[in-house]
């Protein structure tokens, strides 16, 4: 499937290229500038994932009250709301720049090898575009379910905690995580995210020029740790809810 997408994109780009010498600002930027942008946006998104994980882990508490209050805070606090714009820009920039880089990379090898090489490299690094597509599909479902439906469509019940009314996000999550297909899809998405970050985290440092014989081994260990902590952290929540008494 990717091969046909690749061929389609290449033919479109060839038409575009023959008509415009420079297509927009982002395409004419240096290959290295694009690397910095993808790396910085990626690192920023990782910090966000840690915050998101911390709040999600509150679901594992016996009552959903703390989670609901935290979710309400994240959805209403003015500083967080400003950061929401930054976050969406971060996601957008990371995706757009990665796509530009990917298309240029496909264009750099118009005729492919009959037998592709499998050098001694990190296997995850070869599938960043593939893993990103799965993560993107997850993100679309996730945003529809927990952002658009609750924020704009108001399809959510209220719960009263300490005399104040909050949207019952906890109940919504728990209901979702009682559906086997949701749990499976969620777990698979986060395994894929783990693969993506295993390469992505340490790769961002290299892109920013931070490769050093003394520190890079530690950065690579950190990359493994970050990918495992985030993937496992997010995965235990649906498992606990599905198999536990929530």
């Amino acid at each position: 499937m990717f091969h046909s997408i690749r061929l389609f994109v290449l033919s479109v780009m060839n038409i575009v290229q023959s008509n415009y010498t420079i297509m927009g600002n982002s395409l004419s930027q240096s290959s290295l500038t694009k690397k910095y942008v993808v790396a910085l946006a990626g690192l920023f998104l990782i910090t966000f994932l840690f915050v998101h994980l911390a709040i999600n882990l509150l679901l594992l508490l016996p009552a959903t009250d703390t989670f609901n209050v935290a979710a309400h805070f994240m959805g209403t606090n003015i500083i967080i709301k400003v950061f929401e714009v930054v976050l969406f820009s971060g996601i957008f920039i990371h995706i757009i720049y990665s796509l530009i880089v990917q298309v240029q990379n496909w264009m750099a090898r118009p005729v492919r090898y009959k037998l592709e090489n499998w050098s001694h490299t990190s296997p995850f690094s070869k599938f960043m575009i593939h893993t990103s597509v799965i993560i993107f599909i997850f993100l679309v479902f996730h945003l529809i379910e927990f952002y658009i439906e609750t924020k704009f469509l108001g399809q959510i019940a209220d719960v009263v905690i300490d005399g104040e009314s909050y949207p019952d996000m906890g109940l919504k999550v728990i209901t979702a995580f009682k559906i086997p297909i949701v749990v499976i899809g969620y777990i698979l998405s986060f395994i894929v995210l783990g693969f993506h970050l295993h390469h992505g985290f340490q790769s961002a440092f290299q892109s920013l020029g931070l490769n050093h014989t003394k520190y890079t081994p530690t950065i690579k260990l950190l990359s493994t740790a970050v990918s495992i902590i985030l993937a496992v952290g997010f995965i235990i929540i649906p498992l606990a809810i599905y198999f536990g008494n929530y």
Partner: peptide, 18 residues
């Protein structure tokens, strides 16, 4: 390098291996 149409580095490191 960019002008000549070489691709971008995605830190796969096949170059170093080969």
């Amino acid at each position: 390098m960019d002008e000549l149409g070489f691709g971008n580095c995605t830190n796969t490191y096949a170059c170093e291996a080969e």
